[in-house]
Amino acid sequence: MPDSTIAAVLNRASKSTGRGNSWTRVRVRSLRNQHAIAAYQEGERAERGEVTLDEAATALKVSPSTVRRLIEEQSLPAQQLCKGAPWMIKAVDLEHPDVKRAAHARRFRRPSSGDPGQKELQL
């Protein structure tokens, strides 16, 4: 991930630097340089055959929240390095018939309100 994304993930996870500071792109870069960790190169993710949650949503013609639901129900395989980190989705998994079927089934489905007394308005 780019340094700014790593900083955002660390801050969302309430992780601070050794001195108690919040993470910034510069602080992540400094730590990476101290430990000889290579910087993220643009296009690296695509070379590994990975797509973002938003890219998966576009490919499946659903919303990003629907992609999250597909991941939660294990219809779409995905990995997350740690809580709050971006999901890593393999592009080839988006072509699997079961994934396409699950996405298509959700495409026109509206989430229920959870209230059994709520009725649908038929237009």
Rank of each mutant, 00 (worst) to 15 (best):
T24M: 02
T24Q: 04
R25M: 08
R25F: 01
V26Q: 14
V26A: 15
R27N: 13
R27E: 07
R27W: 12
R27P: 07
V28K: 10
V28E: 09
S30A: 14
S30D: 15
L31P: 10
L31E: 14
R32E: 05
N33F: 05
N33P: 10
H35K: 03
I37M: 07
I37W: 07
I37T: 09
A38N: 06
A38D: 10
A39K: 13
Y40G: 08
Y40M: 04
Q41T: 14
Q41R: 15
E42P: 15
E42A: 15
G43A: 09
G43H: 10
G43K: 06
E44V: 06
R45I: 05
A46D: 15
A46T: 15
A46K: 13
E47P: 08
R48S: 08
G49Y: 07
E50I: 06
E50C: 03
V51W: 06
L53A: 02
L53P: 09
E55Y: 03
E55M: 07
E55D: 09
E55F: 00
A56I: 00
A59K: 05
A59W: 07
A59Y: 02
L60A: 02
K61W: 12
K61V: 11
K61E: 14
K61S: 11
V62C: 06
P64S: 07
S65M: 07
S65E: 13
T66D: 12
T66F: 04
T66Q: 04
T66M: 11
V67G: 03
R68Y: 07
R68S: 08
R68Q: 09
R68F: 01
R69P: 06
R69D: 09
L70G: 03
L70I: 01
E72L: 05
E72W: 02
E73D: 15
E73P: 13
Q74N: 08
S75Y: 10
S75I: 04
S75H: 05
L76I: 04
L76W: 05
L76H: 03
L76V: 00
A78I: 01
A78L: 01
Q79A: 05
Q79S: 13
Q80K: 02
L81G: 11
L81D: 13
L81H: 06
L81P: 07
C82G: 09
C82D: 08
C82T: 15
K83Y: 14
K83F: 09
K83I: 13
G84W: 01
A85R: 00
P86G: 02
P86N: 00
W87S: 00
W87T: 06
M88E: 02
A91W: 05
A91F: 07
V92C: 06
V92E: 06
V92Y: 00
D93A: 08
L94C: 04
L94R: 00
E95P: 09
E95H: 02
H96V: 04
H96Y: 06
H96F: 08
P97Y: 11
P97L: 12
D98W: 04
D98Q: 12
V99K: 01
V99D: 08
K100H: 03
K100E: 03
H104C: 08
H104W: 10
A105V: 03
A105E: 11
R106I: 12
R106Q: 13
R107Q: 06
R109G: 04
R109Y: 08
R110D: 14
P111Y: 07
P111F: 10
S112K: 14
S113D: 13
G114R: 13
G114Y: 09
